[in-house]
Design a protein around this nucleic acid. Structure first.
Lengths: 339, 339
DNA sequence: GTGAAAGCGCTAACAC
DNA sequence: GTGTTAGCGCTTTCAC
């Protein structure tokens, strides 16, 4: 049998469609008696509003898109786990899209906007996107960008202070007496803006400590992966003058580097200390455990969702704000050893 | 300015809405000349069909829901990475829902069906769902269940042969000369059907080898997590007669167990050999690397999507089929050591 | 091959 | 407080 419609309910309850709609949505005030009549009819017919029709009438889909480079990157998975419930409790479904780090895909998304797609706004974690790409976006698309960026005044950005956090991570290694420190994960402009902020923090920590930066110890990697970390570590250990520490731009990079080091019989942290970035659960269970920069993911997730919904709900263009979530340094075995 | 509608295009091209629709969807044949006219108008107006309206007219949302217990479980993240592109290439968006292992949530989903929700079908990875719960589902909801189940003849199930795979994993440990083998991850009926199949395979391997099963070495865990694995390992090592091997019901459990063992100075695999299940990338980078049962995730993902779309496309109720994807045993350092 | 027009089921302006 | 009704923008049956 065909599903009951609003009209069926109205008929059975002896009221108009308008009234049923009011009851369902709690918009306008309705007399108790009418409400009860309608509710009985709803139960009897097992009526449930058709979202598709509601969407069309509203012009809203009730969905937001979250676009990340890779779903199987634990950092994003953990972030999503914060985003989904927060969106849902405010009545929004979450569509997930994976770009595979494809800059073209990212660019298309923000240029084309939500038109022709069933979402009302987008949370984007860009990877290959240059600053310029952000300028020719669809202004009608509510957009929140994850990760720090140089302010553009148009979008909201939510992230931690990468320069400061990287500075702290590097100083942690310096404080432990390490002097030849590698940085693993640098990436060229324009795709690697986040990476460059981390390299900047790395340099500043050296400056502050009056230490020179050995440019050959700044290792570029294509991504922030385990395999990138392992490759980089192998290259570093092949040198005559290997480093005694490495600041890795993600925990995955650190875990890959750790794996490579141990494979070659290099001890961590005795021979080389490692610190990562992201504080994924995996780093709390590796052997040794990984020191890391821990971003406040819950705040990032919650803020991104609430900023986005604000933008969706607002008719005028809101100015872009920069939100800095907190972070803290967590020293584990890969720098301070087993105690 | 308001977005262009199909009607605008029709007006500009001097044809009817019907014809524009035909051009856009490639349904009916259209003369080349008409097509060109329409296409020019589309470009000029920067027209894009409104999905919301299309959905309502079609009665379909063009979305499927994928429901997993936890998004940050690498196995599910990797599976999703296979599911999303496959759904998308067939024109479907993917909605992701997380149940947090809440049986009530799962039950509601399959009982209520897609009615009132903007998805046309569902791929469900159940956790707390008993066989009985599956019987009072909404028959109008196209549903594919991930993971092996006793056949119910109604839904499709896609998974590997858990009993056989677990048998092989256990025999691998036996073949290495281990005699006191623990099983970590058993769960009581009805929530842990997958776990029970693995326990069955574990028992069969013992039988086959003429070995007794020490029931006290079968450890129940609330979930399939790192922390569960670590807890279980601690308990096992607290015993006077600790095991010399453990078959873990997931790689996460194995990684947690590994962490706990190493923390206590117990060597892996010399003192205790470990094998996991799922073949997540993390197990290829841990120290030591984790031996595992590797399910063919791509086949699982592709099959689940194509079965679901078949069901969505079919008007009549299809019989439930059981699809067995392949698997293979991968021996790594946690059982055979570093060679 | 193309046109006219009736829905799809809901929302909300407008009237009472 | 409730009823009437015109859309929302597309698909599709039915004629021509």
């Amino acid at each position: 049998m065909r599903d009951a419609t609003l009209r069926d309910v109205a008929l059975l309850a002896g009221v108009s469609a308008r009234t049923v709609s009011n009851v369902v949505n709690g918009y306008a005030p309705v007399t108790d008696r009418t409400r009860r009549k309608v509710e009985r009819a709803i139960v009897e017919l097992d009526y449930r509003p058709n979202v598709l029709a509601r969407n069309l009438a509203n012009g809203r889909s009730g969905q937001i898109a979250v676009v990340v480079p890779y779903l199987d990157t634990p950092y994003f998975a953990e972030l999503l786990q914060g985003i989904i419930p927060r969106a849902r409790e405010r009545g929004y479904n979450v569509l997930i899209d994976q770009t595979d780090g494809d800059a073209t895909h990212e660019r298309d998304l923000i240029r084309r906007g939500a038109r022709g797609f069933p979402f009302d706004g987008m949370i984007l974690s860009p990877l290959g996107l240059a600053q310029e790409d952000l300028s020719d976006h669809d202004p009608a698309l509510p957009l929140v960008i994850l990760g720090e960026r140089v302010s553009d005044g148009v979008f909201d950005h939510v992230g931690i202070d990468d320069v400061v956090a990287s500075h702290e991570a590097t100083r942690h290694l310096i404080d432990l007496g390490r002097r030849r420190i590698a940085a693993i994960g640098d990436q060229p402009y324009p795709t690697g803006e986040a990476a460059q902020l981390r390299t900047l923090g790395f340099r500043r920590a050296h400056e502050e400590a009056g230490l020179p930066v050995d440019e050959s110890l700044i290792i570029r990697t294509p991504r922030f992966n385990r395999v990138d970390g392992a490759d980089a570590m192998h290259r570093l250990l092949d040198r005559d003058d290997p480093p005694d520490a490495a600041f890795c731009y993600s925990d995955l990079v650190a875990l890959g580097a750790l794996h490579a080091a141990l494979e070659r019989g290099v001890r961590v942290p005795e021979d080389i200390a490692l610190i990562g970035y992201d504080d994924i659960e995996e780093g709390r269970y590796s052997n040794p455990t990984i020191s890391t920069v821990s971003p406040d993911k819950l705040t990032i997730a919650a803020t991104a969702v609430s900023r986005l919904l604000q933008r969706i709900g607002s008719t005028e263009a809101l100015p872009g704000v920069e939100v800095r979530a907190g972070h803290r340094l967590i020293a584990r075995q890969s720098t301070v050893g087993r105690r």
